[in-house]
Design a protein around this nucleic acid. Structure first.
Length: 275
DNA sequence: TTCGTCCTGGTA
DNA sequence: TACCAGGACGAA
């Protein structure tokens, strides 16, 4: 599941490889178009001939800025991958969209479960997208005060609030479970019940797990790969996610798997006490 | 605010 | 063979 650290890793990998390359042609390989809002032919007509100027990440979105003023917006959802390849490399059966670039380079969107989305946006479209999303948790502006302000308005569970991209951008199920364990907060706590000290712990935990995930180049269970097709390494450092039955690294009690906000949720029932 | 939907491979 | 995994969005 590509979350902030995974998308950031892909963005960094791709930036050094595809910036200043021309899009020479586009191949849409799925009868059900991966491209949202525009017929595949129109998509090709609007991007072929443009140069890739910049790659950015906003939340879990990867934004490819072109020389013609348009942006290709990619969301990998659960199983999407953006892989760099050479034309001679045989395409994976999972390939859905191929951008053929100058310099005999290809950028391929592969997706087992076909949830990934690609769309085209102008500057205003990117502004609208960004406005819909909450703050970037690794930015300087993401202070304890900002976190407190955004959580105080929430009435649902802490986990549901943290998964909402309009509250904070970039967190998904893995890093939310890890951050809540790190902060010793139960996922079903009401956000408004958090003390100043607990908010401080949560703020530090969110940043810490994301930074560690980034340092490990993301988390791979089965699907996630970086732009070169390599798995990440953070799964070896996870403390609760997918570790049900294993001893809590702090107190030794078995990690429990339950369901919160409709998502599989992993926690230590001794270290993370409901408020 | 919660649930169903999209989708397919892996697992019980 | 049925169910589970889950990001985002629309419906109830």
């Amino acid at each position: 599941m590509p979350e902030l650290p995974e998308v950031e890793t892909i963005k960094n990998d791709l930036s050094s490889e595809v910036v200043n390359h021309l899009i020479e042609s586009v191949d849409s390989l799925d009868p059900r178009p991966a491209i949202f809002g525009i017929p595949p032919g129109d998509f090709a007509a609007r991007v072929v001939g443009a140069c890739i100027e910049q790659l950015q990440r906003r939340g879990k979105y990867l934004i490819i800025t072109l020389s013609n003023g348009l942006h290709i917006v990619v969301h990998l959802r659960m199983t999407g991958r953006l892989i760099l390849a050479r034309p001679a490399d045989p395409p994976s059966r999972l390939a859905r969209l191929i951008l053929r670039l100058s310099g005999r380079l290809e950028l391929r969107l592969e997706d087992q479960r076909k949830f990934a989305t690609v769309s085209l946006a102008d500057d205003k479209g990117i502004e609208d997208l960004s406005r819909r999303l909450g703050p970037e948790p690794l930015s300087e502006g993401f202070t304890v005060e900002v976190l407190a302000d955004r959580l105080m308005k929430q009435r649902r569970s802490l986990k549901a609030a943290l998964l909402d991209q309009s509250v904070i951008a970039g967190l998904g199920n893995i890093y939310v479970d890890e951050a809540l364990f790190e902060a010793r907060l139960h996922p079903e706590r009401r956000p408004s019940s958090l003390s100043r000290m607990e908010l401080g712990r949560l703020h530090a935990a969110i940043r810490r797990v994301l930074q560690m995930g980034l340092a490990s180049r993301g988390t791979t269970f089965s699907d996630y790969r970086d732009a070169f097709g390599r798995p990440g390494g953070y799964q070896q450092h996870l403390r609760v996610y997918r570790r049900a039955g294993e001893p809590c690294p702090i107190c030794g009690r078995p990690i429990v798997k339950t369901s919160v906000a409709g998502r599989g949720t992993h926690l230590c029932s001794r270290c993370q006490v409901p408020g």
